[in-house]
Design a protein around this nucleic acid. Structure first.
Length: 448
DNA sequence: TATTGTTTAAAGGTCG
DNA sequence: CGACCTTTAAACAATA
């Protein structure tokens, strides 16, 4: 099936198709060179493998990418104030983050390029107005802008369905980070993604299933129960406070390491050892893990460098993990009497704990909380130096209110490319095309 | 009943 | 090449 990432240009066209893909006949042909991006301070921004092109490059997607990238860039306090290029043109109502960030890249060119592609109408999911959390509609502004923008040129349509170079995990992260409360419901996450990437307005059940899987499967995502004042279906999803630098490597295609919650890890382990878990009837959960987890149990000895409220500070020693487990248990209890009877398994308890932990922080404090507990790479790499440093994702309270259109300045962003940035200066479009292995979304349009 | 969540399984990609 | 990561698919359970 379609591969999401590949630095191999060749794969661009190859993959895809397979599934019952009934891709629209007009499957994009990334012939790039669409917009002459007026990129401002483009070219190579980072020493890393950033290719300027990536995001800004192709028409709509570029914009999307740019916006997304920008979303991830929400800087906390440290504004990199470098080149406010083109920023003003945005007329962004929100100046909040405007002055910050701008690592000196793009302009809004990308932004404007977004226009087309059904920006306005996201099929099934209610419009960007019906969200649970205020401010959720991340791109409503973008969308609006898009509409006002001059009628899209035909070329734009070509990139509409290109698959964005982000993994689902990073997409989810973007969505969550982009929200002022740092938490979203599943539906909101879907919406964010669809609003931002036309590609995902197709085959919804396919990728949405993947999104759900990612949310459940990855410890970096934590479910936070709804509060009585916010009735509705489904919980809120937020990022694990410890998962901060998952993408510090600068590439959102794939994380360097999977984030593992020590507590969950312990629980999973205990779960498997019959001796430790007395009265627990072995259900399916006991059988899991083989495939994905068993090799991870003791990994990342170098990774746990920070602690969460002093609870996580070891290198995975069971005893310590258990200790912290207990520690959080209190929080859980204090949190609420969320009677999750039924098969209240350890996992569920654990989840409660985490939720509680996150929940304790007032939404307004959440971002701060996050930023305070970001993991720092022990290595010499300086996260903050990276245009897409995840650490920048975590805005402080004051900056939490990030709007997509403020990110337009990142149009020229180039952080996601898995490739070397030797082409940084070249035509974004082409570069994007080549380096990202942007494929046709021939992957199929499963009805819908 | 449609969503939302959780799991299992498997295939394929990436990276050291 | 092996360990690890991501994507997909799909079965199921819980729930608004």
């Amino acid at each position: 099936m379609q591969k999401l990432y590949s630095d191999n240009p060749a794969s661009i066209t190859s993959t895809s198709m397979s599934n019952n893909g009934n891709m629209s006949p007009m499957t994009p042909t990334y012939s790039m060179n669409s917009m002459g991006m007026t990129v401002g301070g483009m070219s190579s921004v980072s020493p890393q493998n950033f290719s300027t092109g990536v995001l800004n490059t192709s028409g709509m997607n570029s914009m999307n990418a740019a916006a997304a990238a920008a979303a991830m860039n929400a800087m906390p306090g440290n504004c990199m104030s470098s080149t406010p290029i083109g920023y003003s043109s945005m007329g962004s109502p929100l100046g909040n983050m405007g002055s910050c960030m701008s690592t000196g890249m793009g302009t809004m060119a990308a932004m404007s390029s977004y226009a087309g592609a059904g920006v306005g109408g996201t099929p099934g999911a209610g419009g960007p107005g019906s969200r649970d959390l205020d401010n959720v509609s991340p791109n409503s502004a973008i969308l609006q802008r898009a509409r006002t923008e001059k009628p899209a040129a035909a070329y734009r349509r070509n990139y509409t369905h290109a698959k964005p170079p982000y993994s689902y995990i990073s997409l989810i992260t973007m969505a969550i980070q982009n929200n002022s409360h740092k938490m979203l419901t599943l539906a909101e996450i879907y919406q964010f993604i669809m609003d931002l990437f036309p590609f995902y307005r197709q085959n919804q059940q396919r990728w949405q299933n993947s999104i759900r899987h990612s949310l459940s499967f990855n410890d970096c995502f934590v479910k936070v129960p709804r509060t009585p004042d916010k009735p509705g279906k489904g919980s809120f999803w937020t990022l694990h406070p410890e998962s901060g630098n998952m993408f510090e490597n600068g590439c959102y295609l794939r994380r360097q390491k999977r984030f593992k919650d020590e507590k969950k890890e312990v629980l999973r382990t205990l779960h498997k050892s019959p001796s430790s878990m007395e009265a627990h009837s072995p259900d399916k959960k006991d059988l899991q893990d083989d495939h994905h987890h068993h090799h991870h149990h003791h990994r990342d000895p170098h990774k746990l460098t920070s602690d969460t409220h002093g609870m996580l500070n070891t290198h995975g020693k069971d005893t310590d993990a258990l200790a912290m487990l207990h520690a959080t248990a209190d929080l859980c209890l204090a949190q609420q009497s969320h009677s999750q009877h039924g098969g209240s398994h350890h996992q569920q308890l654990q989840q409660e704990e985490l939720s509680a932990m996150v929940n304790r922080c007032h939404p307004s404090l959440l971002s701060e909380y996050h930023s305070m507990h970001l993991k720092q790479e022990p290595s010499g790499y300086t996260p903050s130096s990276h245009p897409f440093s995840i650490t920048r994702l975590l805005p402080t309270e004051s900056k939490a209110d990030i709007k997509m259109y403020d990110m337009s300045q990142y149009a020229n962003y180039n952080g996601l490319s898995p490739l070397p940035n030797t082409h940084a200066a070249l035509g974004q479009d082409s570069y994007y095309h080549q380096s990202l292995g942007y494929h046709h979304s021939t992957a199929g349009t499963t009805s819908l």
